[in-house]
Design a protein around this nucleic acid. Structure first.
Length: 596
RNA sequence: GCCCCCGUAGCUCAGUGGAUAGAGCGAUGGUUUCCUAAACCAUAGGUCGCAGGUUCGAUCCCUGCCGGGGGUACCA
């Protein structure tokens, strides 16, 4: 619309606009911040005025004259302020859009025109370590992105690239050989392996300030001053195929897997594939040979690395002087394997931003190495670190990170308290199973939402209370809005199929109806924005806007007690709100209870 | 040293080359004969780290500085 107006403007000789400039100029049409300026606003007149040798206002008038608004927008009478062209969606057009959405199972959201195959690599915990609050970001963000991209129409392949072959196993092996507790392992193997990992990590790191807080670790560290080196040796032996270490690894793996699977089940997160580092282990030697043969890598100081930035920049090492491979080697092998087997257009790595340099190097190496395998886009979807109150990466005072399960338990337990209180107060008579099920959805949802609603690129300060909050901008707010929608249909004995068939007959008489309708028809835009920058928080803030518009609407306007066209319109808005919020929450991996 | 990220309300964080910079929590006041008050409405609270520059317009882009964090050859 604006595009054609600008083309005509150029054709009419008022200002010369090159075709390649058009997209950027059309981008200058955006949603208004304040409804009093209409729904959309174009600002290009101000920027073009100088070139046109006209006043911005006059140029805006020329643009308005050339706008072909069809029947979508009310005609703007004249520019506002220095040259804003403000457009208001015509009520009839808005009602039409709402009705299209109401009648469509996808709520009027068209799938992408050119679907791609997208591999998503997320969660990827080190299985020997207990999962802690820092692991939740990758898991939750990756799961949400996968669901959103799939809904958009892409083919997605999710892969949990487990850390099951690294130094952390060396730590457990060393711990097993030096300080295991057989009874504890028999009773609870997971807990014992977790204990060994935490203990040995301290011993191997041998940081005085940590040892000062842990006498047991201090004693061991004193007895084994070479522990750090010995841990690496255990790792190397595992990699070389040492029978004893290999047997222990085989024994530990199921235990570690069971541990993380329990948490995934709780989070309702699953993967199409779980190909850990160990899966690629047989290919690593080949990767190094290949890179050497092609001249991409070379030997240096006994190690083998890829020198991307000349001699000064640190190289990407793919084989250590002792012959062991590194995670860069595995990552390169993984890239090649995925390209060969899955033929993806894009591969997304949802990983902490501290690894951005690593990925830059790996991607650069991969591009050189796999140059003839076609244009695959490798993207590091980085996210910020979870910090403690002190602004440092999150730790408790004892130096151990907070366990993920404890967080989930606390979330559900707090939610149960609220559910129970509300049930008692309202006298709705829920069974304890119902309460528990709702609390599970609300509690876990709160934790996921707290992470998803944050801009993924920034670090954030972990707060137990904030993470588990159930009022304000939280998952519970959206879940509650859905429950109120469901409440209306249940109470009124309304057939939703009928509502969708009848749809809205308009007009939108109340500004609160209009605000809700405008919000609802923008769902597709929100999902588009999420994909553009891989930012789920754009969806959470969209949903918060919808739920807020609905809460205002709900509070002020009766639905069941309304009559005729008004009632039909409001029911349609309720139906669409409920489905939009439900779909949105499900795309974020957040459960949606029928009632609360 | 070099590279990357961050600095926005009391706290935690959104946000944008455009109009009066927002939300949640916290604070203060109000709303329930009415579809779920986990809600709604209102008020207070800001030198968008500092200084220059580009621009019709900068919190946003550029440069410098200050402050915080991260990475930086054989951990992942």
């Amino acid at each position: 619309m604006f595009r054609r107006a600008l083309e005509r403007l150029s054709a009419d000789g008022l200002v010369t606009i090159a075709p390649e400039e058009l997209p950027a100029l059309v981008e200058q049409v955006r949603e208004t911040a304040d409804p009093k300026h209409g729904d959309y606003s174009g600002t290009m007149a101000m920027g073009l005025a100088k070139r046109a040798g006209k006043k911005p206002r006059d140029l805006a008038i020329e643009i308005i004259r050339r706008l072909d608004l069809a029947d979508l927008f009310d005609a703007p009478s004249e520019p506002v302020g220095p040259g804003f062209i403000n457009l208001r969606v015509r009520d009839e057009a808005l009602v039409r859009a709402v009705n299209t959405a109401v009648r469509d199972p996808r709520m009027g959201i068209a799938p992408v025109a050119e679907p791609e195959t997208i591999v998503l690599d997320y969660s990827s915990p080190n299985v020997a370590k207990p999962m802690h609050v820092g692991h939740i970001r990758s898991t939750v963000i990756g799961d949400a992105l996968a669901k959103i991209l799939r809904f958009r129409g892409h083919t997605t392949i999710t892969d949990n690239h487990l850390g099951d072959w690294g130094t952390q196993f060396g730590m457990i092996l060393w711990g097993w050989k030096h300080c295991r507790d057989d009874d504890a392992f028999a009773a609870d193997p997971t807990a014992e392996l977790g204990r060994l990992y935490r203990l040995v990590r301290k011993v191997a790191d041998a940081k005085p300030e940590e040892l000062a807080l842990d006498p047991k670790a201090a004693t061991l560290a004193a007895e084994h001053p070479e522990a750090g080196r010995e841990v690496l040796a255990e790792t190397a032996k595992l990699h070389e195929g040492d029978p004893q270490n290999r047997a222990l690894w085989e024994r530990f793996m199921p235990v570690c897997r069971a541990e993380i699977e329990r948490i995934y089940a709780r989070l309702n997160v699953s993967f199409d594939h779980t190909l850990g580092e160990s899966f690629y282990q047989p290919m690593l030697a080949g990767v190094v040979d290949d890179l050497l043969a092609t001249g991409i890598a070379r030997e240096s100081r006994g190690a083998i690395g890829v020198f991307l930035g000349g001699e000064e920049a640190p190289p990407l090492l793919i084989r250590k002087a002792d012959g062991a491979f590194l995670y860069a080697t595995t990552d390169l092998a993984t890239i090649r394997w995925r390209i060969e087997h899955w033929r993806p257009d894009r591969v997304l790595y949802v990983v902490d931003h501290r690894q951005s340099q690593h990925f830059e190097q790996v991607f650069a190496t991969a591009r050189r190495w796999q140059g003839d395998l076609g244009p695959v886009e490798l993207v590091h979807v980085a996210f910020g670190t979870v910090l403690g109150d002190d602004g440092k990466p999150f730790k408790t005072r004892a130096g151990d990170t907070v366990g993920l399960e404890a967080l989930l338990d606390e979330g559900v337990s707090r939610a149960l308290g609220v559910v129970t209180a509300a049930d008692v107060e309202r006298g709705t008579g829920m069974s304890s199973e119902q309460r528990q099920r709702i609390a599970e959805g609300v509690g876990i949802g709160a934790i996921k939402y707290a992470d998803l609603s944050q801009n993924r690129t920034t670090d954030y300060v972990f707060s137990f209370d904030k993470m588990l909050q159930l009022t304000g901008n939280t998952a519970a707010y959206m879940q509650y809005a859905v429950a109120r929608v469901e409440g209306i249909f249940a109470k009124g004995g309304i057939d939703r199929g009928q509502v969708r068939h009848e749809a809205a007959s308009g007009p939108l008489t109340d500004p609160r109806e209009r605000a809700l309708a405008i919000a609802l028809v923008r769902f597709g835009e929100a999902l588009e924005d999420v994909e553009a920058d891989y930012r789920p928080n754009l969806l959470t803030s969209y949903l918060f806007g919808v739920a807020g518009a609905y809460s205002t609407f709900y509070d002020a306007l009766p639905v069941l007690r309304a009559e005729g066209a008004e009632r039909a319109t409001r029911l349609a808005l309720c139906d669409l709100t409920g489905r939009s919020l439900r779909t949105g929450l499900e795309l974020l991996g957040i459960p949606v209870p029928e009632r609360m």
